[in-house]
Simulated scan of single mutants.
Amino acid sequence: MVRCGCALLRKYGNFIDNLRIFAKGGSGGMGYPRLGGEGGRGGDVWVVARKNMTLKQLKNKYPQKRFVAGGGANSRVSALKGSKGKDCEVPAPVGISVTDENGKVLGELNKEEDRILVAKGGLGGKLHTNFLPLKGQKRIIHLDLKVIADVGLVGFPNAGKSSLLSRVSHATPVIADYPFTTLRPELGKIMYNDFKQISVADLPGLIEGAHMNKGMGHKFLKHLERTRQLLFVVDISGFQLSSVTRYRTAFETIILLIKELELYKEELQTKPALLAVNKMDLPDAQVKLHELMKQLQSPEEFLHLFERKMIPEKAVEFQHIIPISTVTGEGIEELKSCIRKALDEQDDKENNVHHSKQLLTLQSSSSAP
């Protein structure tokens, strides 16, 4: 199958990853019937990506969450064509998906200054409207944050994802020896000697049942959709969320993580994946690693240990498996090299696909009569 508490919820609630807003384009201006003058068009409402903006800041700054553009100017003797109403801009973070009330995607903000028109202004009064202006478009809009990163860290709570992020990048996430330290996405960048930068997202830890939105389920899983690759991080000694939950070995942890991704959205399993086996500084870690590698090389021999519903339908092939310790630094440089290599290979594949499509398009156009 696999190859090479309440206080916490309140804290997480301070991090907003979706927001519902009202947007209304400005009304057009009145026409001037006697002289055939046209009223100005109403202003438009745009969602614009701004640096260092968060949805929480947006909500705090505009608690009513209403964004209305200016009305167009009326036509008059001194200005027969009325001026356009003032546009209204909704400042939003990079990495936003914008949808309407029916779930239709209006666009995405993938880089700073990207903008999406969400509510058009009404036309000004003119001859064919009997010089009466039209009202602006009204819309309920949903802003949905999905982290953009090259690599997304996948693991159960306390697997060491935050410690790993601080080791490989300049990020300074909160780190403590208990589950759910990460309550909101943390982003870091791996810097290479040739100035290449790779972004890494550490996301709130999964728990079993995440696909059913248990714990922080969907808040976590949706962020993975906008990462290019997945880096599974598992504790070599296994995982147990609490004294009342079942202990899971490292191998079981990997199988369960893959199943959670599959149950949420099968496409997540098509992403290139790496595996970091953490806490190799612990006693008996080498013995446990040897056992884990045997299980990963012949997973079908061990799947009888699982309930049928826990077994993934589709295999995930890890491009690299790297034993690491975020305490001693063992394997960290090798991991960084493997991440770089995997992304470079992915870039080459994507470029080849793009060139092939271009070639096919050229061949089709040249053979057309």
Results as ranks from 00 to 15, higher is better:
2 V>N: 14
4 C>R: 10
11 K>Y: 04
16 I>G: 02
17 D>G: 08
19 L>A: 09
24 K>W: 01
28 G>W: 01
28 G>T: 09
42 G>H: 02
47 V>P: 03
48 V>E: 12
50 R>Q: 12
51 K>L: 13
53 M>D: 00
59 K>L: 14
61 K>M: 12
61 K>R: 14
65 K>W: 02
87 D>E: 11
87 D>S: 07
95 G>A: 07
104 K>C: 03
106 L>F: 03
111 K>Q: 15
115 R>A: 14
121 G>A: 09
125 G>N: 06
125 G>Q: 07
131 F>C: 08
131 F>E: 02
134 L>F: 11
138 K>W: 06
140 I>G: 00
145 L>R: 06
146 K>W: 00
147 V>H: 03
188 G>S: 06
188 G>A: 09
192 Y>T: 09
214 K>C: 07
218 H>C: 01
229 Q>G: 12
233 V>E: 02
239 F>Y: 15
256 L>E: 13
260 E>Y: 02
274 L>I: 08
274 L>G: 08
274 L>V: 09
280 M>K: 08
284 D>R: 13
285 A>C: 03
302 F>N: 12
315 A>D: 15
324 I>K: 11
334 E>L: 13
338 C>K: 15
340 R>Y: 12
348 D>K: 11
352 N>I: 05
355 H>L: 15
356 S>Q: 13
356 S>V: 00
357 K>W: 07
360 L>W: 07
361 T>S: 11
362 L>M: 11
